[in-house]
């Protein structure tokens, strides 16, 4: 475990240094991320300036919900964006390089790269969360800020673990891109900007049980916004870190299962 951690940190350091070689890309990318998210939020603003609330959620509450998602997503994007590319690594034979080295393949795979676009997500989401906090007139006890950090990390783990679980199937099938893309639609197309309670039971259950992306932002936000008594499933708000750990366990199990049955594509 300790050895793995050292290897991981060494690799991350190398990856960061590589990235810092390209500064212009970095600045342009961050600006792009700001505008992309501003565009989505602007659409919500247009809707909510006309309709006042969406299923009981005001504009600033939606902003909070959205940026809670973006914070977790951003952290995961910085460190684990490349896990979506496992399929490509396998097909191109890059993954076989990893297997020849005397260190844990998962650690090597996770530590391979860092991605600066996520930094833009994190900066923007923190800024927007502060704005939402003020505009909603929230007044949290001190421990709630600590809980926010716990939740931010657990959101990142939830998204990372679901993705890792799904990409690990490419050890068996060599194709997982389409599967991962469809699954992530439940993340950025559903839970990201819409309060899950406005949907029917089926979709609610999918994002709670099957692909529990709702634990990235929706359930945790219920307590941050003082809404946990409004819905019957308000108690779930506290379980996000537990869900994250369970998913992580499942993802690592799936990875180990897959890698045992892995046969190189030979290229």
């Amino acid at each position: 475990m300790r050895e793995n951690m050292t290897i991981y940190l060494t690799m991350i350091r190398a990856a960061v240094l590589t990235r810092l070689e390209y500064r212009a890309d970095f600045v342009m990318g961050i600006i792009g991320v700001f505008i992309l998210n501003a565009g989505t939020l602007a659409t919500s603003w247009v809707l909510l300036s006309r309709f006042q609330n969406l299923h009981g959620w005001t504009f600033w509450e939606i902003v909070f919900l959205y940026n809670m998602w973006l914070l977790g997503h951003g952290i995961r994007a910085v460190f684990f964006r490349h896990i979506n590319m496992l399929e490509q690594f396998i097909v191109e034979g890059t993954f076989d390089q990893i297997l020849t080295r005397p260190a844990n393949p998962l650690v090597q795979f996770l530590g391979r790269e860092v991605h600066y676009l996520g930094v833009g997500d994190v900066l923007l989401s923190v800024f927007m969360l502060v704005l939402a906090y003020h505009n909603l007139g929230l007044n949290w006890p001190w421990w709630m800020f600590g809980w926010l950090i716990v939740i931010a990390l657990s959101s990142a783990v939830v998204e990372m673990a679901i993705t890792l679980l799904l990409v690990s199937t490419s050890f068996l099938t060599t194709r997982s891109r389409a599967l991962v893309n469809s699954a992530s639609l439940f993340s950025w197309g559903v839970v990201q900007q819409y309060p899950v309670d406005m949907f029917g039971k089926l979709l609610r259950n999918i994002v709670t049980i099957l692909l529990p992306f709702a634990f990235m932002n929706y359930y945790p936000s219920l307590v941050f916004l003082g809404k946990q008594d409004v819905v019957p499933w308000g108690f779930l708000t506290w379980y996000a870190p537990v869900v994250a750990l369970i998913l992580l366990f499942l993802a690592i199990s799936m990875w180990n299962y897959g890698i045992k049955r892995y046969q190189s594509s030979g290229s």
Partner: peptide
């Protein structure tokens, strides 16, 4: 890369595709 986010967001917002 960087420009495409801007372009994508602009078209999505200003075209009336969603709202």
């Amino acid at each position: 890369m960087g420009f495409s986010f801007t372009y994508f967001a602009l078209v999505r917002f200003a075209s009336g595709q969603i709202v």
